[in-house]
């Protein structure tokens, strides 16, 4: 594999909110099948970086090159709105921390899962429904709930539904913002294990933002540690967690009971 096979290539990305916060000088590459964890405390720029990658925010400077399924390399910020949206419902996926931000609450579970397919032109009800049922099973939601609205689901189920809704279109790059945040520990464990299995089975490329080093340890191959909008340390997950070099990373690692 050469360097050019990277799925995502980020260079000198910067966004200043105008109050000195934001992100600065972020550069990294991501290869197919890799899971990159972004860790750091609140306000360190983790979520801002994820939103820049997902196109929800436009950077002040820097480039985000993405290799499309066809092999072409495009700068996500230079794409037309039409292509960006198309990419956003086919090859890219964004899992929000709060499932309510990523679901249509007035639409049934099946409709939520089927939306990306329909947005991409699927017009066969039976096949859309079969795909929805298949995905509900994969995220461990019983088939009997397919016509229930997410408002009747528990937090853990809503999050699993959001994941199904995102993965149904077979995305190549999945961005996750604290997907286990706000869930009970036991519910978290189930979701984490589910995510771990899906990532491995589907060979997904993932960028996952988390402040939970246990989550990072379990899911991520590589970590970037952010502080004050910069990446201060990066490397393999066990390198960063077992041999942290920066003072802040050492503080982060020593602050958890066991990661």
């Amino acid at each position: 594999m050469t360097r050019d096979d990277a799925l995502l290539s980020v260079r000198d990305l910067a966004l200043d909110y105008g109050n000195g916060r934001g992100v600065r000088d972020v550069s990294f590459r991501l290869w197919p099948g890799e899971v990159l964890g972004i860790v750091g405390e609140s306000g360190s720029g983790k979520t801002t970086l994820l939103k820049l990658l997902g196109g929800q925010l436009a950077p002040d400077a820097g480039t985000i090159h993405y290799r499309m399924a066809g092999g072409d390399m495009v700068d996500l910020n230079d794409l037309s709105e039409a292509r960006r949206r198309h990419l956003g419902r086919t090859e890219l996926a964004f899992v929000h921390q709060n499932p309510r931000d990523g679901l249509r609450l007035a639409v049934t579970a099946g409709g939520n899962v089927g939306e990306r397919l329909m947005a991409d032109g699927a017009r066969h009800y039976g096949r859309i429904r079969a795909a929805a049922l298949d995905w509900l099973e994969r995220v461990e939601i019983e088939a009997g709930r397919v016509d229930d609205r997410p408002t009747t689901f528990s937090g853990g189920m809503q999050q699993r539904l959001q994941i199904a809704r995102n993965l149904v279109s077979g995305p190549r790059l999945v961005l996750m913002d604290e997907p286990t945040g706000g869930l009970d520990v036991s519910v978290q464990a189930r979701l984490l294990d589910l995510l771990r299995g899906l990532v491995a089975d589907l060979g997904l490329t993932v960028v996952i933002v988390t402040h939970d080093l246990g989550v990072a340890r379990l899911l991520a191959h590589r970590l970037m540690v952010m502080q004050g909008g910069r990446v201060i340390e990066s490397g393999l997950t066990d390198q960063v967690l077992d041999d942290p070099r920066e003072p802040y990373t050492q503080l982060l690692v020593s602050s958890v009971l066991a990661a």
């Binding site: 049934t108 089927g114 947005a119």
Partner: peptide
């Protein structure tokens, strides 16, 4: 307006899906 400009009409199809499902 953006949805019309882009011909992005999946959401209406979701509405019709909901009718059939329910």
């Amino acid at each position: 307006r953006a949805l019309h400009a882009l011909g992005d009409y999946g959401v209406m199809q979701v509405e019709l899906y909901e009718d059939i499902a329910i």
